[in-house]
Design a protein around this nucleic acid. Structure first.
Lengths: 115, 115
DNA sequence: TAATATGTAACCCAAAAGGTTACATACGTC
DNA sequence: GACGTATGTAACCTTTTGGGTTACATATTA
């Protein structure tokens, strides 16, 4: 598993950098387009709110992306946050590996964009 | 984007099928190992609760997996749920595609396991 | 039979999403 | 300078949800 050293990019950052600014539209107008309140979008853009599944569906539609794109960004951010918040989970005693069927890691534990 | 026709596998299902049963341990004992209450684990296994980032970290440690493995399962499930709950997001009017920088879809919008 | 495991409900607390309203600030244009 | 708009943010409300404890009825097992 790839370590997350740096703070993952917050979805709000992408919205701002890659959509809001290039499109030269206001938060107010984008919120209206997305069908959410100005507050909801503002919170996300200012990284004080999370992209929920419902929000991801709206973003995917507006910006012709996948909902997973947004949810993955949020997931990586949340995971990084959780690790930072508490290390209690490190006290969990692993089951003996020889008793476990072995799943390998899934891709995109980081922000991956295919081209 | 790959359509999710069928209900995605709930993480609780994996815990039960691939860990609880093969290891022949009780929910009570597994909860103790994970350092959470019996109720918390029971809810997840009975698909009435979600795997949170903190829980994913515990599971990853106990079962030698990645937290992302669990969070991806949960994400796919949540997204499927959100789509089922409401189709309001389909009313969002897409921005004209010629104005948009184009991100392509991220991998594992479904439950993917590398071997 | 006795002990344990389990699902579940009740109850408590805390967090968080999302909405509305309101306000001070900043940045325009006229 | 004056007015309108955009924005961050706070306050307030509702609903949902995670997680813990306690309790209880029903399996399940030793």
């Amino acid at each position: 598993m790839r370590k997350m050293i740096r703070r993952p990019t917050h979805p709000g950052n992408i919205i701002k950098k890659d959509y809001l600014l290039p499109l030269s539209i206001t938060i107010k107008d984008m919120a209206a387009t997305l069908g959410v309140s100005r507050k909801t979008l503002s919170k996300i853009i200012n990284e004080r709110g999370a992209v929920t599944p419902h929000m991801a569906l709206r973003l995917s539609r507006a910006f012709d992306t996948t909902p997973d794109f947004w949810l993955n960004l949020q997931k990586n951010f949340d995971l990084w946050q959780a690790k930072k918040e508490s290390q209690e989970w490190e006290k969990v005693r692993p089951f003996p590996k020889n008793l476990l069927h072995h799943y390998n890691s899934t891709p995109n534990s980081e922000h991956i964009i295919q081209d």
